[in-house]
């Protein structure tokens, strides 16, 4: 087998895997329907508004409920020191005011 054959077979395999990854997204949506439904029903049952992604501080846990100056809400001179806080933007409902 020639070197170019090896290369084209490799390229074809990779391109096929790339296409498989695109097909996989469709399969993933179908498979996660049950999980999504369960999560959505818990959200509507408890009236949840935020994901539990940043649990380190109370104003990063419920970002949508935080104030514009939430990073400084502990006391007027309090500086932001949580890693999440340094990567976050103010909530959008406050930012526009």
């Amino acid at each position: 087998m020639r070197k170019s054959d090896h290369f084209f077979i490799l390229l074809l395999t990779m391109a096929t895997l790339f296409l498989v990854s695109l097909v996989d997204t469709a399969r993933g949506v179908a498979e996660s329907t049950v999980r999504m439904d369960r999560t959505r029903s818990l959200i509507s049952q408890l009236g949840l508004s935020d994901p539990a992604l940043f649990t380190e501080a109370r104003y990063t846990r419920h970002l949508s409920q935080a104030d514009l100056h939430s990073a400084f809400q502990d006391h007027p001179m309090a500086m932001e020191h949580f890693p999440s806080g340094s990567l976050l933007m103010p909530p959008q409902h406050e930012a526009g005011k």
């Binding site: 997204t25 949506v29 539990a52 380190e56 890693p83």
Partner: peptide, 14 residues
């Protein structure tokens, strides 16, 4: 960040 509790989750491929 400094959080102790972090969810284990699998995202929907998209």
């Amino acid at each position: 960040g400094w959080a102790v509790l972090y969810p284990q989750f699998q995202l929907i491929p998209s």
